[in-house]
Design a protein around this nucleic acid. Structure first.
Lengths: 71, 71
DNA sequence: CATAAAAGTGCTTTAAAAAGCACTTTTATG
DNA sequence: CATAAAAGTGCTTTTTAAAGCACTTTTATG
């Protein structure tokens, strides 16, 4: 799996806001267990779960074309 | 649910590349049924599914702080 | 308007995400 | 180094994502 970037972004944002996993769980409506697993790199959250977390943290989940050298 | 933006991005990218759902299914390793459901706005794909699709389309899934007016 | 390709759907099985509980471990802080 | 808060884990149940199959509908194209 390779969405460490997502994990990192969320974790950093959460810590920057000084919010605990438990509070984020409450704010987002995502189960504490799910949140913990996700931040640990275990599991494979659904788009809905990612979306709820993003919302609670004032973030956004986007898809964009990857920049390469030869385009 | 509100990740229509993700759906739109993928669909547009796929069509721009002139790739069928079936081909994208093959390229990405995501089941055809899953792909179809996703593009229809049904379902709730996992991060892994999103990631596979993104890879096949030369795209990237990212989390970023939402820009607001007052920040 | 025939027809072929692409897209969409109903059904089913299997795998695993989500959730909560009770517990342990790690990490600050005095 | 006590201790309290936060983070992490094993186990379980329920829900649902993923997948394939067979089929229908929609959409180009001649």
């Amino acid at each position: 799996m390779h969405f460490e970037n997502l994990i990192k972004a969320i974790k950093e944002r959460r810590e920057m806001l000084q919010v605990t996993q438990e509070t984020l769980s409450d704010l987002s409506g995502v189960g504490l267990r799910t949140l913990k697993q996700f931040e640990r790199g275990k599991g494979n959250p659904t788009a809905q779960t990612l979306s709820k977390i993003a919302d609670a943290l004032g973030m956004e989940l986007t898809f964009h074309v990857k920049k390469t050298h030869n385009d």
